[in-house]
C-alpha cells in the first residue's frame, strides 16, 4: 500500500493527465490489474509496472519484424534493449509509441493507453533520422522538447527558453546554445537530442541509441544524466549496442531478437546462454563479453 501511495503522488504532479487515469495506475486495493497481468505473462514481476506490453507484433510490408513481444517494466529502472542488427529494436520503440502500425497486441502506459499519457512519455529518435543541415541552432532544437507544454499554435516565452537552457547546462552544452546544429560534432548533437528529451520532463523515456558514436566524455555525461533520471524515480529504456558496458550501466536488460529472448535484472539475465540465443552463432566472442 505504501508503494502505491508514493506512486500516486509521483503521478499527481504531472500536467495534462485527465483525473480519472491516475486512479487506474496505482490501484487502490491489492495487486493492480497490471501486476496480475504481468505475472500471468511470465517474465519479471515489477512491483510498480509503468509499461506493460502484451502480444505485440508488427511487420514492414509483409515481412514480420516483431512477434509475440511480452514484457513489463518497473518504475525507476534503467533498462537496456540489446540485440543484433535488424532485430527490430528501433521498431519496437516505434510500435509502442504508435509511430509504426502494429498488427496485434497492446501497450499499457501507467495503467492506461499511450494516447492518454503522451505528455509523460519522452522519446529520443536516432540521431541519423534527421537532417542536421536544417537551419536551426542548438537551443531551437532543445526548445522543441517543450512544444507540447507550450501548446500548439502558441509561441514560446522566456520561461521556456530558460527551461531549455537549464537542460542544456545539465548536458554541458549551454555554451553551444547559439551554435548552428550543422556545426556540432556527433557527440554534441547527441547531447542536444538528450537535452531535448530532458526538457520534456517525462516519467518514462525511450532512447534510441543515445550512446552510438559518441566519445568517452559524452558517454559519461549521458550515463550520469540517465542515472540521475533513474534516481528521481523515472523509468528509462535505452536501445544499446555495446555489450561490454551493459553490466556497468544498466540494472535491467532486455535481450531482443524479434521477440523477447530474456528480460530481467542484469545480474541474472545477462548470461552467456541468453546472449547466445539472442545473437546466434558461435560462443567464442561471447567469452570476451561475459567472463
Amino acid at each position: 500500500m505504501k508503494t502505491e501511495l508514493t506512486l500516486q503522488t509521483e503521478e499527481s504532479k504531472t500536467t495534462g493527465v485527465p483525473e480519472g487515469d491516475e486512479t487506474n495506475a496505482g490501484g487502490s486495493s491489492g495487486p493492480s490489474e497490471e501486476t496480475r497481468q504481468a505475472r500471468r505473462i511470465g517474465g519479471p514481476d515489477p512491483a510498480e509496472p509503468v509499461l506493460v506490453v502484451r502480444d505485440l507484433s508488427a511487420a514492414y510490408r509483409k515481412n514480420p519484424v516483431l512477434a509475440d513481444v511480452n514484457f513489463a517494466v518497473g518504475r525507476g529502472t534503467l533498462t537496456c534493449i540489446v540485440g543484433p542488427n535488424g532485430a527490430g529494436k528501433s521498431t519496437l520503440l516505434k510500435v509502442m509509441l504508435d509511430l509504426h502500425p502494429r498488427l496485434t497486441g497492446t501497450g499499457s502506459f501507467f495503467g492506461t493507453t499511450y494516447q492518454k499519457v503522451k505528455s509523460r512519455v519522452g522519446y529520443m529518435p536516432q540521431r541519423g533520422t534527421v537532417d542536421w543541415d536544417f537551419p536551426a541552432d542548438a537551443l531551437d532544437v532543445v526548445m522543441m522538447g517543450l512544444y507540447g507544454q507550450i501548446g500548439w499554435l502558441r509561441w514560446p516565452r522566456r520561461k521556456h527558453r530558460e527551461l531549455a537552457l537549464a537542460a542544456m547546462e545539465k548536458m554541458g552544452i549551454e555554451h553551444l546554445a547559439k551554435r548552428q546544429i550543422s556545426q556540432l560534432s556527433g557527440g554534441q548533437q547527441q547531447r542536444v537530442f538528450l537535452a531535448r528529451a530532458l526538457v520534456q520532463d517525462a516519467d518514462l523515456y525511450f532512447l534510441d541509441e543515445p550512446l552510438a558514436g559518441v566519445d568517452a566524455a559524452t558517454e559519461w555525461a549521458i550515463m550520469e544524466t540517465l542515472r540521475a533520471l533513474k534516481n528521481r524515480g523515472k523509468t528509462v529504456l535505452v536501445v544499446h549496442h555495446d555489450l561490454h558496458t551493459v553490466r556497468d550501466y544498466f540494472d535491467h536488460v532486455l535481450l531482443f531478437n524479434r521477440t523477447v529472448i530474456a528480460h530481467g535484472p542484469t545480474e541474472e539475465t545477462f548470461t552467456r546462454d541468453h546472449l547466445a540465443r539472442t545473437y546466434g552463432g558461435t560462443l567464442r566472442w561471447l567469452e570476451a563479453v561475459v567472463p
Binding site: K94, V121, Y123, P125, M144, Y147, G148, R196
Partner: peptide, 8 residues
C-alpha cells in the same frame, strides 16, 4: 518522428 511523439 519526434513531432508525432509529442502529439503533433
Amino acid at each position: 518522428l519526434f513531432a508525432r511523439g509529442l502529439g503533433l
